[in-house]
């Protein structure tokens, strides 16, 4: 589904990703862990299509298409979703109007007719229950005046509404209390299927107790330096990242 080969990327002249490889198949959950500054958020930004990031080398294909060739909106229309680490507040644009516009532009791109108002509202009701987001919040301006936990739940609500094929969750656990974390994880788990995949980017193992990954990758200095089963996350939690660094230096 997603195939990243030898990806090099930089921002403001500073090289961050230095030869990253990653392969994600449908139905799988991948966790990407790593110390601060290892390039986790850069990877999320590059995949989502932030223009301030320069691709220096490498390729990324998504469902057979050259992802790097697509605009940010076309990536979303192809089925990529990024849950932001810091969701943006947009005063005056209602969540509902925003999602209706997004959903219909995605449908149009994929040759589908616009969704009827009735079906749309039905989906809103169903999905907001999934992340325990009150109807009131769903109708308010996008993220405006939302608490940190509400913003993250709103990200998962949007993900549920848009039904992406690949979701990248960028530090979705940061700043969440245990209840919010449980709600967010429950949302993600409910949406898991054989056809879609999830990449969870996180600094801590905590989230992975709730969203259990099939693979854990360690990102360090812009490359994936170690991959393993879910137990790797526990090992990292226990030993910290120094152990990886040492292993690398020996090699």
């Amino acid at each position: 589904m997603l195939n990243i080969k030898n990806l090099h990327a930089s921002v403001e002249g500073k090289q961050i990703l230095k030869g990253l490889d990653l392969q994600v198949e449908p139905g799988s959950v991948h966790a990407i862990m790593g110390p601060n500054g290892s390039g986790k958020s850069t990877l999320a930004s590059v995949l989502a299509g932030r223009e301030e990031y320069e691709i220096d080398e490498g390729e990324v294909s998504f469902l057979g298409k050259d992802l790097l060739d697509l605009s940010a909106e076309d990536r979303a229309r192809e089925g990529l979703f990024l849950a932001f680490q810091y969701p943006i507040e947009i005063p005056g644009v209602s969540n509902i109007n925003f999602l209706k516009t997004a959903l219909n532009e995605i449908r149009e791109y994929n040759g589908l007719p616009a969704m009827s108002a009735k079906d749309f509202l039905k989906r809103v009701k169903e999905k907001q229950a999934l992340v325990e987001l009150s109807g009131n919040l769903a109708r308010r301006s996008v993220n405006e005046g939302f608490s940190g936990g509400e913003k993250k739940r709103n990200e998962i609500f949007q993900m549920a509404m848009l039904e992406p094929k690949l979701s990248v969750l960028d530090e979705t656990d940061s700043g969440l209390d245990i209840d919010a974390l449980r709600i967010v994880a429950n949302g993600v788990n409910t949406l898991r299927s054989e056809d879609n995949a999830t990449v969870v980017i996180t600094h801590y193992q905590r989230l992975l107790d709730y969203i259990v990954p099939d693979f854990v990758h360690v990102l360090y200095q812009g490359r994936i330096v170690k991959s393993g089963p879910k137990e790797l996350a526990l090992e990292l939690e226990e030993k910290g990242y120094d152990w990886i660094k040492e292993e690398l230096e020996l090699a």
């Binding site: 909106e73 990536r75 979303a76 969701p87 507040e89 644009v93 997004a102 532009e105 995605i106 791109y109």
Partner: peptide, 19 residues
Amino acid sequence: AVFYLRSRGIGEASARKLM
């Protein structure tokens, strides 16, 4: 904010119009 809207599949022109 424009990027946020685009990342949800909304084209650049409609994102600006919404704003």
